[in-house]
Design a protein around this nucleic acid. Structure first.
Length: 554
RNA sequence: GCGCCCAUGGCUCAGCUGGAUAGAGCGACGGUUUGCGGAACCGUAGGUCGCAGGUUCGAGUCCUGCUGGGCGCACCA
């Protein structure tokens, strides 16, 4: 919509130049925005103010000149006004909006789709929790945000792939195997002193029990070295399946699950090290192999190969990101918990060292979630085994509510998630407020049908009967949807969608309480139903981006 | 000590690439329906945008310093 306005302004400026009223060197960037107060107009531009310097004229004089050419230039404009220090406020004709409303409804499920992404290949990696235990609430926030971002980027025309990186290598995996093995022996009657640094969660016992059911006491008298590989693999697979299941129930799926181990299997890690060595970015010290990351804005150098010969997590991550780039992604987005923020400069240093433009790489830090129950904090720690799992939270409040809570706030602020509040099906809970609007609209359509109103989305409706100021407020809000999607995609901010929906829906509720939709006036009824249909489509498409359902009844 | 994030009405938060009188929701107080879903609507009270400078025609928004809170600073992942 704003693009259309920009063209109109551009033409007016061009005409002013040809008439010799403006110099326009250089030609200004045209910024169109919405005035805060709708009464001031539908759109405004500050070109006159930005031009003041280069034209050496008072902004008001410039504005008057531009306004004159605007008025003569387009019949989509119903009013052009100059306000304040030189803002040019534009009011559009009703027909301008109604035309666009028609095409929005025609688009249906596709309404909101744009091509700002121009098919750019984007990869977004998220969750990537170690398969050493079930997902907790913090992972849930990452999952919801990553998934929703993916949906938004697709809607904005990007060619998107999602990926989960499985850290199936390293010491933690041995700890996991050993923890399971110890519980196995314990359950078979041995007295075990369970080490504090092992995984103590109940889920380990569940896995051990499963193994007992299948293998009986087969492993009981075997030496540790012969047992661990089996326990390690069994526990990992089991936990990973659990994670996949939890995510699927949370409506989060991935295009690809990428195994860290596979980077070792095909020698990618070795090759990455060799490559960096060839570039002179690597040295040996104290028996370990280091990357000179400090040469690229990291605070210190980092170890790639420990003196034990093992490679660090960071080392395989280098190979992984090289792999991503080689797959042709032009934009690589990683979601991480905010506690990993120290990792950012390190990773950017590597990409620079490898000669890539580090702008293609973007790490989004997701701040912590504090889980509360009636104001009381619940603590989380995987090792200690006392945490609220995503599964528990979802089964308590439901997928819609959980996703909404994770997505309603900017992800760079801490989130307080109060289970008691989330459960309440009252006005405290914005997700129900929005869903209620959708259900209410559906109910109105049901009533209309009962009353014999014949309605079909494809029918021609006389929209000129929509004349109320409130109706146009709603129409403007509906038509802003594609821009909201576009901005969310550009800024990688999901919460804008939820704030937008809330605003639009409250306009609807207000409108509904003051105006009858279904009346004896058949033509007006149809026009208003058309508007409600547009709102319904927008709610549905907006919630679809958030992965939240739009029920027809509640 | 170094680094990242945050700071906006009693509470939880918006505020779009700086723009015109700072907005919601909850809570408080008061009101609204013999009609389409009251899980709704309308109104009132409540803010020196943490503090101090700076840039700008213009700063909640950008820069610097400070204060307060969260999180990091491994040959863990």
């Amino acid at each position: 919509m704003k693009t259309a306005i920009k063209i109109i302004i551009h033409d007016a400026l061009e005409n002013a130049r040809q008439a010799g009223e403006l110099e326009l060197s250089p030609f200004p960037e045209i910024v169109v925005e919405k005035p805060k107060d709708e009464k001031m107009g539908d759109f405004s531009t500050n070109v006159a103010m930005t031009l003041a310097r280069s034209e050496r004229k008072n902004p008001k004089v410039i504005a008057e000149s531009v306004a004159r050419y605007l008025k003569n230039g387009s019949n989509d404009l119903s009013q052009v006004e100059i306000a304040g220090p030189g803002f040019i406020n534009l009011k559009m004709s009703n027909e301008f909006f109604l035309q666009r409303l028609r095409s929005a409804v025609k688009q249906g499920d596709d309404f909101g789709q744009t091509d700002v992404g121009q098919g750019t290949k984007v990869m977004i990696e998220f969750v990537s929790a170690n398969p050493t235990g079930p997902l907790h609430v913090g992972h849930g926030r990452g999952a919801a945000v990553g998934d929703a971002l993916g949906r938004i980027l697709k809607k904005a025309g990007y060619d998107l792939s999602t990926e989960y990186y499985i850290n199936d290598v390293g010491n933690q995996m041995n700890f996991l195997g050993r923890s399971t093995w110890l519980r196995y022996r314990e359950l078979l009657g041995e007295v075990i002193e369970f080490p504090a640094d092992h995984y103590r969660g109940e889920y380990i016992k569940d896995i051990a029990n499963e193994i007992i059911e299948q293998k009986r006491d087969e492993f009981l008298n075997l030496p540790e070295e012969e047992c661990i590989p089996f326990f390690r693999k069994y526990a990992t697979d089991n936990i990973l399946q659990g994670i996949q299941k939890d995510l699927a129930e949370f409506r989060v799926t991935f295009d690809n699950w990428f195994s860290e181990q596979s980077l070792y299997d095909d020698n990618s890690v070795e090759k990455a090290i060799e490559w960096l060595k060839g570039k002179g970015h690597i040295y040996e010290k104290d028996g370990a192999v280091w990357l000179k990351s400090s040469a690229f804005n990291d605070d210190k150098d980092r170890v790639l190969v420990k003196k034990t010969g093992e490679k660090t997590y960071f080392c395989s991550d280098i190979a992984y990101h090289q792999n991503k780039i080689n797959r042709g992604f032009k934009k690589i987005i990683n979601l991480m918990g905010a506690d990993h923020h120290g990792y950012v400069p390190r990773m950017e240093a590597v990409l620079q060292a490898m000669g890539y433009d580090n702008k293609i790489f973007k790490i989004l830090l997701i701040q912590f979630v504090s889980l509360l129950r009636a104001g009381e904090k619940i603590s989380m720690s995987t090792r200690a085994g006392e945490f609220e799992t995503l599964r528990d939270v979802v089964s308590e409040v439901g997928v819609d509510v959980a996703r909404y809570y994770f997505l309603m706030r900017s992800s760079d602020t801490h989130l307080d998630f109060d289970l008691e509040l989330a459960k309440q099906e009252t006005s405290e809970n914005p997700v129900f407020y929005i869903q209620y609007a959708h259900a209410r609209i559906c109910s109105i359509f049901r009533t209309a049908e009962e009353k014999g109103v014949v309605w079909d989305r494809s029918n021609e409706v006389d929209l000129s009967l929509l004349v109320e100021e409130e109706e146009f407020g709603i129409i403007r809000a509906v038509l802003a949807f594609p821009e909201i999607v576009e901005k969310s995609a550009r800024a990688l901010e999901v919460h804008r969608i939820s704030h937008y929906l809330l605003d639009m829906v409250s306009r609807f509720h207000g409108y509904y309480s003051r105006h009858r939709v279904i009346s004896d006036d058949k033509a007006l009824t149809l026009a208003r139903l058309f508007l409600l249909d547009a709102i319904r489509i927008t709610i549905r498409n907006g919630f679809e981006l958030m992965g939240i359902s739009s029920p027809e009844k509640m």
